[in-house]
């Protein structure tokens, strides 16, 4: 676990890079998104100094909500030290000078790509998701003009056609990530490409969850304690991935595991994808042993 204290931000930039006008515009979109859980609010996404598809939506959301007292954690694939997470954390250290941490519990704002931390979040935290394609109906209906209507009219039959087809062709629902959810019984939402393993964590979550899609110019949100239900059939209920293995480092049998190839002869091991969760457990195990 590593925490770096706040420092002086680069004077060449406004706090957290974006100018205040832009932040206001994004905050307005955020408020609207929170007021209509699961609804995709169009917003005037700005060009950021990192490429589209690399977290520009999440970065803009984070930049708009950060205050100098915040402690920021950035993860990619559950890990704090993957290159893109490092790069985004560095960006905010430079432009906002805020404290950063890898400790899930200490963080007040957590920006993530593809995972939700294993440790339960609290009311004092905000989770910001980076979203590539916000539209859950996109691959069934490529037209924005049509999908907007489908959401407006709650015309979601097509979504179940996809699940039906999964079962009829594979015997079970073959969607493993970006698994669609229904929010408060109204909007169907794409939880971003997190594995379906993380879907249950979204339901009734204490923390505020914000989703930013920069290239597609959409923001959506789940206020704390929102009902989030993964779509399924009565006789084919939603279920999450399970591993027969345990984490080789901390022994966890209830976390999302990454497979690591150790040699070219089929050797492999499984380790927690959430590096903070795993290292805390390792320390706990050591202490217990001593």
């Amino acid at each position: 676990m590593s925490t770096e204290p706040a420092s002086v931000p680069d004077p060449g930039y406004n706090f957290a890079y974006l100018n205040e006008q832009t932040k206001k515009m994004i905050r307005r979109a955020l408020l609207k998104a929170i007021a209509i859980p699961g609804y995709q609010v169009p917003f005037a996404s700005r060009e950021m100094p990192m490429p589209y598809g690399w977290g520009t939506g999440g970065v803009q959301v984070t930049a708009s909500i950060l205050t100098p007292d915040d402690v920021l954690k950035v993860i990619d694939q559950g890990a704090d030290d993957t290159t893109n997470a490092v790069s985004i954390r560095k960006f905010f250290r430079r432009t906002a000078g805020i404290a950063t941490t890898s400790d899930t519990e200490t963080a007040t704002v957590i920006q993530t790509r593809h995972r939700i931390p294993e440790e339960p979040l609290s009311e004092s935290q905000i989770l910001v998701f980076q979203v590539p394609i916000p539209e859950p109906l996109r691959f069934l209906e490529p037209r924005e003009t049509e999908t907007r209507k489908m959401h407006a009219y709650e015309d979601y039959g097509l979504m179940h056609v996809k699940l039906y087809e999964d079962i009829s062709q594979n015997g079970h629902i073959a969607t493993t990530y970006a698994y669609p959810v229904r929010v408060e019984g109204r909007y169907v939402m794409d939880p971003s490409p997190t594995p379906k393993f993380d879907n249950p964590k979204m339901d009734n979550c204490e923390a505020l969850q914000l989703f930013g899609a920069g290239r597609e110019k959409r923001i959506y949100a789940l206020p704390p304690y929102t009902r989030v239900v993964s779509l399924d059939f009565e006789d084919h209920p939603f279920e999450i991935q399970k591993w027969t293995e345990k984490c080789s480092l901390c022994g966890a049998d209830d976390s999302f595991l990454d497979e690591v190839i150790t040699d070219d002869k089929g050797g492999r091991m499984f380790v927690c994808s959430d590096t903070d969760f795993c290292s805390k457990r390792q320390i706990g195990r050591q202490e217990a042993a001593e």
């Binding site: 979601y156 039959g157 097509l158 039906y164 059939f233 009565e234």
Partner: peptide, 13 residues
């Protein structure tokens, strides 16, 4: 099945 699912049928079988 599409029309059925659009009309709230939720049981695959």
């Amino acid at each position: 099945g599409e029309r059925l699912m659009a009309n709230q049928w939720q049981h695959y079988g």
